[in-house]
Amino acid sequence: MGDDAADGASESDLAQNDGQRFGRLPTTAAERTVEGRASREEVVDYFADRFAIPPEAFDDYTFWEKGAGKIWIYGGDAPSPITIEAIGMTCLRTRQEHWKPTTDFVQRFGREAGECVIELESDEARAFAAGEDRELERWEGDWGYLIAAHRIAGALEPIGVGLYVHGELRSMVPKGRQREL
């Protein structure tokens, strides 16, 4: 996912990423002007390929990068680049081998997901929200980042992001979001 900068301008023509401000993601890799920056197309494809979230779910949103690889999703108006404190919400960490969605993003958009969603029983869900890791041998899908969800008030509701490896689901719920429920 991160190695297709060659599709666009050569690396030497590209600006370095300025981690202090928000820059809007280019529509496609070919329109990239900042070295190493993911494109909107790659981000939308990632959510579709990994979680089967329909690309249309993002039609009304723009994606932005600030810092090294931290991607934000925004529904309002803003010029690019812009130096402010926050723009919409963080949604994804790029510039690393395995991209990682945020807890708050999957809570907001994860109901649209059809793949890589692991349903937790109520005690497992409580442990996950408290930040605990659990052995979960029953998962037969892909390893890597999953959306952990539980059934609540008659519907499946995403709780956060888990990392599934070697039969264990590790809770990625950030410390400040963890709760004893």
């Binding site: 309002g76 402010i84 919400m89 809570q107």
Partner: peptide, 27 residues
């Protein structure tokens, strides 16, 4: 923290004195 927990994607957060707030940063 609250904006993210509540899933508000329409917020742009700025840190300035509102008394002489400039809109130049926006379009």
């Amino acid at each position: 923290f609250n904006a993210e927990r509540l899933g508000a994607t329409s917020l742009a957060v700025t840190n300035d004195d509102a008394r002489n707030y400039s809109l130049e940063r926006f379009d």
